[in-house]
Design a protein around this nucleic acid. Structure first.
Lengths: 209, 209
DNA sequence: CACAATCGGACGATAGACGTCCGTTTATGG
DNA sequence: CCATAAACGGACGTCTATCGTCCGATTGTG
């Protein structure tokens, strides 16, 4: 859980409500995505909508704060994985964690997929840090000979979304942890040596336009 | 494109409008999913909403007809793949096609993921046929020694959804065919021999209740 | 060519969602 | 302990969208 409130000069109940709102928003966007109503959040937090707008000014601002917290947690995870002794373990663990984070919060998944709107400077900074982490983890694993030659760090980034919507398909139920099997299969597919050549251009860093 | 209209005793313009509505609905649910408004469909088809309700009675009925058509196309594809001489090729091709179909129509993806509402008898029949196809393709590939031991046909069914939402992630853009790289990686991960053991229970056929 | 079949789209009824405003309640410093 | 500024809750006005119906206008066809 991230730093919930750096705001000092507020009455205690106000600070408490601010906390509750952030917690409620986390849970709300986790299950329903970013398209949550202010009323639903307020109800879940046990406050009135007025309090929500008083504390955050805009529903947007509240959502931004919560999403930024999630990004910060991802950055922490990346640091932990980069400290792993084994290069492959570090990469595999981060991919699993990133995939899990995407699954744990539909709202987060919606934000990491956004490519149209310009992100806030804060988010852009975190995004760059996460890209950097994947680059390092990937190159470390590649140097150690664990990666198939034709896979890029961008492929790996993309693959970390692959378990997002894999709970059911045509009458089959993956169960609560079925997504981990999918990620495991992906990681095995990424590991050296490759079998089927990856065709088409590799994914690229997105350019605005 | 499926059989567009078995209805005979209708005026020619009515039949034409029916066709246009089905085509427009296909395109609408492909990009926006099942949550399309009747007005949007009617506009895209070049008719009034009245015509939509006159031809199909309900928006639901129209959607059902279109989705059933998509399922029938999948069944055709399955038959083609089962005729492939090479067991692995047949399985790999069907997984790629099924993944592509999911990507081509967000509406179809929503339906194959549905597990709460009971499907129509027609849909249930097609679902069973598709399950059967995957079972046969899988067992054929397994017998030929192409599959890792711990992967089940249910895993493969689930994996065919993995490329659904993999266009962008944290500033990386997969490009129009990037999803194929993901599926290729998955197929390599499914191929014998396995590397990392698949943990947890395998996905199961869904039971109501 | 007459008329039944069909069409288009305005319409009334619902269903939310957003953000504001104000009477009421509560924390807190002196 | 209390006066008062701070904070609270939720009703409210305003929008935007959707569904399915209804009827005057139009058009295919025997």
């Amino acid at each position: 859980m991230p730093d919930l409130d750096p705001v000092p000069d507020v009455r205690a109940d106000a600070r408490h409500n601010r906390r509750q709102l952030i917690i409620a928003t986390r849970e709300a966007i986790a299950s329903r995505g970013l398209d949550v109503s202010a009323l639903d959040i307020a109800k879940a937090a046990g406050v009135g909508v007025g309090t929500l707008y008083r504390r955050f000014g805009t529903k947007e601002a509240l959502l931004d704060a919560v999403v930024l917290g999630l990004y910060d947690e991802l950055c922490d995870t990346a640091r932990v994985c980069m400290d792993r002794a084994d290069a492959w373990e570090g990469l595999a663990e981060f991919v699993m964690e990133l995939a899990g984070a995407h699954r744990d919060s539909r709202g987060l998944a919606e934000v990491t997929a956004a490519c149209d709107r310009p992100p806030s400077p804060e988010l852009a900074e975190r995004t760059a840090a996460l890209q950097d982490a994947v680059i390092r983890l990937t190159e470390r694993a590649r140097t150690a000979g664990h990666l198939r030659a034709d896979v890029t760090w961008q492929d790996i980034m993309i693959c970390s979304r692959a378990a997002l919507d894999t709970d059911h398909c045509l009458g089959v139920d993956a169960g609560p942890d079925g997504w981990r099997r999918v990620v495991t299969i992906l990681l095995d597919g990424i590991h050296a040596p490759g079998r089927t050549p990856l065709e088409g251009p590799a994914p690229q860093v997105h350019r605005e336009g």
